[in-house]
Design a protein around this nucleic acid. Structure first.
Lengths: 341, 341
DNA sequence: TTGTACGCGTTATCAC
DNA sequence: GTGATAACGCGTACAA
């Protein structure tokens, strides 16, 4: 005897038992469940009643084996250290849940090899589709994956069948932020970028440069530093800026966390934001509204990103072509910026 | 013909095919895979070779159907808005992954009904065990669940078979924080608590009161306010403190987020931390090291909580009794506290 | 419209 | 030790 539950555990309610109770065959029950075919109203009623009375819940495992789909989608994530990691996941979870799908999360650690392994794991688990959050996996690997499975990827602009990419306009965001500072009269605007391998980071930097150029401002290499998107790296980068004897009245950090680190570095130097230096971040993480002073930043709708990615996946799973895109970047002006003295 | 992959897709490598290639029966392959029985070295070798050559990966779905276990554990989480949501999940993921298990996350929204539904979902998905992060589900419901399935729960002290609880010592944490302020010479110490239904919150408050009593300090009701663990609620609570015309030289908030809100409220009133008011938080979220000034707080090892919860679950899954517990609270002294003037 | 029969990939049971 | 054989619970051609 197979011991599945403790002694005295209720016998599992199977589709077969529902069929017996309703006086129909198992296939009919299955048809009703899946809407696979038209069934007479009478039988449908009987089956619905039986399901209700027995409290029947289809077994997803068996479903997965028989039907070839598991009603689960894999999600490859990266930055655990990011404050919005959880928020994005929740967006996915909420959207997927509404359609009866469950997410399966695995973490790639910003590492192509790990990501490849993650995808192996997910495929071994027979997920129906995969969502990849802006990873470092090669485009070709992604395309290959998309041949077997629907794939949604953020942070890139790829085109391929079975592959949908969702790209936040980081360039425009970077430009918005920089224009804002220029509009306030700042002329020497320092920039703390991210890693060059990180597409988001280079786009934000491009936006910064574009805004500078638009305004006819030159580029000074001493106004450049880069970090790793962490608070500490923002702090360090700011120190380096001072070390290079660069003078600036405004500072744009490629993400909020680095902006926070920069704020602390400025504070340690006795400089006050925004009186002495205006500061702009990027992302609008939840805490950005509550720093001292509250941070002006480019809003990234991270929960929405999760939802939209999931929604796009659901559409693909239904065999539809999805045209879903992310909303445009928006600047949120708070109290860390002001006009140049 | 069942179309599972696109045309020209490789036939799936099944256990059966491994068996044929190795010249043994499927049962033998299964035995080797699971260590269910002793097999001759020769056959084991042949099977291992075949597995390697074919690149065989067992199908977890089929395994779940046949074996009654899915190698997945459900995780019920709550606060999406919490900065360490993602960190805890990662701890679980890391620990579980090492043992070949995958986590399945669902969110309870701090709501008993939702949590109950979550557990239904997880059981429908046939998870092998469930980890519940300090939710609001009744103890009895949890116990009932534990009769069918191993359960690990954080934020409570329950005892039952099949149920392991992991409780962080919030009382001691609250006491540590308050003692620190008292040790610095503060006598009028305000407190911002959480919701009374939240066990963590009341424990932290108990710790605060205990430290006060130890020191022979009286309790002043005007020094009390409470919030919802969010920045905004901390800000509001601090305003109420001022509204009550309470005077205090130190403020202890029951979590970091409320402390951040409080810091902003103080700032708006022209008060400087720590010169005018010392501030202590609770949790040690990552950003606490980078606020202005860096926040003194009680460290909660949230990644470890995830890992330990998962490790406890793995032990239970192996049929062992686990005695795993969380580490003791530790105060992290940074720059938001100093001696009373 | 409905039922029958089989397959999904693996594990458990029982003989040998 | 090892191999048949029967589940596991459901989806789906195919026949009726």
């Amino acid at each position: 005897m197979k011991i599945r539950n403790g002694p005295g555990a209720a016998a599992p309610v199977t589709l077969q038992r529902v069929a017996e109770r309703a006086g129909v065959s198992a296939s009919t029950v299955s048809r009703i469940l899946n809407g696979t075919a038209i069934v007479s109203a009478a039988k449908k009623q009987a089956v619905d009643d039986a399901i209700a009375q027995l409290g029947f819940v289809p077994n997803p495992v068996a479903r997965g084996l028989a039907g070839g789909r598991t009603l689960s989608v894999g999600v490859v994530t990266q930055a655990i250290n990011s404050p919005f990691y959880g928020v994005a996941l929740r967006g996915i979870e909420d959207e997927l849940g509404g359609a009866g799908y469950s997410p399966l999360f695995v973490s790639g650690h910003w590492n192509a090899d790990d990501e490849a392994r993650c995808i192996e794991t997910l495929r071994a688990r027979r997920v129906d589709g995969i969502i990849v959050f802006s990873g470092r996996l090669g485009d070709s690997a992604l395309r290959a994956c998309a041949r077997a499975l629907p794939v949604v990827v953020t942070g890139r602009s790829l085109k391929a069948t079975g592959l949908h990419s969702l790209n936040f306009d980081n360039f425009e965001g970077g430009r918005l932020a920089t224009r804002h500072l220029i509009g306030l009269g700042h002329r020497r605007i320092a920039f703390i970028g991210g890693e060059p391998e990180h597409p988001d980071a280079v786009e934000r930097q491009r936006g910064y440069l574009a805004a500078l150029e638009e305004a006819g401002l030159g580029v000074d290499a001493r106004l450049f530093a880069s970090g790793l998107y962490t608070e500490q790296s923002g702090l360090d980068a700011t120190e380096r800026l001072f070390g290079a004897r660069a003078s600036f009245s405004a500072l744009f950090a490629a993400n909020d966390q680095m902006a926070f680190g920069a704020a602390l570095a400025l504070h340690r130097r006795g400089l006050v934001v925004p009186q002495d230096v205006s500061l702009v971040g990027f992302d609008d993480v939840p805490s950005a509204s509550y720093t001292i002073p509250p941070l002006t930043t480019v809003h990234q709708p991270i929960y929405e990103v999760g939802r939209i990615a999931a929604a796009a996946m659901l559409e693909m799973l239904r065999g539809l072509k999805t045209r879903l895109q992310l909303p445009a970047p928006q600047l949120v002006v708070r109290e860390s910026t002001r006009g140049r003295r």
